[in-house]
Structure formats: structure tokens, C-alpha cells
């Protein structure tokens, strides 16, 4: 196994105090290798987004340490944060709330170039880079320029988010359910682009999803999360073809299969066994 780019030890997040205390993420350990596509699977409310935000440095862990590139992460100052975010980026779940509705979408892409130290480049050069990035996700920059986010469809917005990653070329990408708000038809296209982008840039992708079938289809290794804990992890084949945790089994049963009738009885029995 190659060197780990990102790992965590005993990472914990507790929201609130006293009676209102919620342990969103509970002492999780993880280790992601370079170039890997890791899925984190769990039902909604299991703490996936909270973990993603801690990894991104948007939330500080209540407990535990995160290691980036083998070194303990230190992002206390703004400069350190900026440096960290050059290496680690994200795509969020809801494209409609990911954009500042008051800004034209050009500014989002311009920011990426500036962030990578391209602020001194002539405007033509920048436009060329943006056009290339848009072309990568099958969008025509000429049609998008001077438009506001609300003039785009959800699929287009999410593709533009991939274009942003294409421009930023981070080492690690955290994709927090990037396709869950997208209609099924655009979903495949977006996943495909994400994978292409990974090949192009050569980054590690941490793919968060509630869809275990999808995880099996795309990932190298899988972490299963239940109530803030990782209950199982391993290669995709290991975890999904021979699950050891009940929770994993349940997630697998929840996936409807097109070629076979959905066995409600089986789903119900595992659920009641859980309860």
C-alpha cells in the first residue's frame, strides 16, 4: 500500500452541551492512500458531512488528530489554511446553495485561477483556462459567461463545480453526495466527469454517499459509517460481497435491483433484527 495522504486518529465531533449533546462523529480512524477512490457510506444523519467538514478544516474536531501528507495538520492561521486548501478541496451536496446567487459564475472560476497564483495572468490567458475547464465538463463558457447561478440547471451547476476542481487541481477531493440532488440521467454524466477529472489531475477522491451500490461501482475501498462510527472498512469487494457488519448488510438489502424483484420481506427482517 502506498503512502497515506490523509489519515485521522480518534476524530470526534460533539455538538451542543449537556442534554442537547449530539455526538455526530465518534472516535473514527481512517487512512486514505494516494490516488485512491474511497467511499464513505452511511444513511443520512450518520455524521458523514460533519466528518467531511472536519477534514476540510471548516469545523474543528472536538477530539483527535488529522494528518495530511504524513504530517500533523496545523491550520491555525489564515495563511496555513490557504495553503491547506490548495491541497484539499470539496464539492458539496446541494449545488443550489453552493453558489453565491449575487455573483456571476465567472467569478467562481476566476477565484480558482487566482488561488493557484494566476492572478497576474492576462485576462485572455485566464479566459482560455476557464474555457478549457468548461470544455472538460462539456459546458460552453461563451454561453455561461455573465450568467447568474440561478440561470443554470442543477446538473450544470454541479458540472461547473467539477470544472472548478479541474482548475484547482487539488491532491484530495472530498465529494459530499455530489449527485444526490441531481436527476438520475445527469448523475452518470457527472460521475463519469468526476472520474475523468481524477485521471486527469491524479487526485485522491473521498466520495461520500448513502448509496452503497454506487460506492461499489466506483470505489477502491469503502468505509461504512453508522451513528458517527466506522463499523466496517476494506476494499469494495470485501465490504460489499462479504459484509461482516449487520448495518452493511442492511444497506445492501435496501438497494433495489432491477433484474430481481425487490424482496421487501428480507429488507424488513434485517431492519427488525436491527431494532
Amino acid at each position: 500500500m502506498s503512502k497515506s495522504v490523509l489519515s485521522g486518529k480518534g476524530v470526534t465531533k460533539v455538538f451542543g452541551l449537556g442534554d442537547k449533546k449530539t455526538v455526530a462523529v465518534d472516535h473514527v480512524n481512517f487512512k486514505f492512500s494516494k490516488g485512491e477512490l474511497v467511499s464513505i457510506v452511511g444513511e443520512s444523519g450518520s455524521g458523514k458531512t460533519t466528518l467531511v467538514k472536519m477534514i476540510l478544516g471548516l469545523l474543528s474536531p472536538t477530539e483527535g488528530d488529522i494528518y495530511f501528507m504524513g504530517k500533523k495538520r496545523d491550520i491555525r492561521t489564515r495563511k496555513q489554511k490557504r495553503e491547506y486548501w490548495k491541497g484539499i478541496q470539496a464539492i458539496f451536496q446541494d449545488p443550489f446553495s453552493s453558489y453565491n446567487i449575487f455573483h456571476k459564475i465567472d467569478s467562481v472560476l476566476m477565484d480558482c485561477i487566482n488561488m493557484r497564483g494566476g492572478s497576474h495572468l492576462p485576462r485572455d490567458e485566464k479566459i482560455k483556462m476557464i474555457t478549457e475547464a468548461c470544455g472538460f465538463v462539456n459546458l460552453k463558457y461563451a454561453e455561461l459567461t455573465n450568467k447568474y447561478p440561478f440561470e443554470l440547471s442543477g446538473g450544470q451547476m454541479q458540472r461547473l463545480m467539477i470544472a472548478r476542481i479541474f482548475l484547482l487541481k487539488p491532491q484530495i477531493l472530498l465529494a459530499d453526495e455530489p449527485t444526490s440532488m441531481i436527476d438520475a440521467c445527469s448523475r452518470a454524466t457527472i460521475l463519469d466527469m468526476l472520474l475523468q477529472c481524477r485521471n486527469e489531475v491524479g487526485m485522491t477522491i473521498i466520495f461520500v454517499t448513502h448509496d452503497i451500490g454506487l460506492a461499489y461501482y466506483i470505489s477502491d475501498s469503502v468505509y461504512i459509517m453508522e451513528h458517527g462510527k466506522f463499523v466496517e472498512h476494506g476494499t469494495a469487494d470485501q465490504v460489499i460481497l462479504s459484509p461482516t457488519a449487520d448495518y452493511t448488510q442492511r444497506l445492501i438489502n435496501d438497494v433495489p435491483k432491477i433484474h430481481a424483484p425487490w424482496d421487501f420481506a428480507k429488507v424488513a427482517s434485517t431492519v427488525s433484527a436491527q431494532a
Binding site: K53, L56, L58, K81, W85, Q89, A90, F92, Q93, D94, S97, S98, Y99, N100, I101, V108, D111, C112, M115
Partner: peptide, 9 residues
């Protein structure tokens, strides 16, 4: 998320 994205930028 747009605020988070702005921070990430």
C-alpha cells in the same frame, strides 16, 4: 455551502 466554498477559495 456557498460560504464554505468561499472559505475554501
Amino acid at each position: 455551502d456557498h460560504v464554505n466554498l468561499s472559505k475554501l477559495s
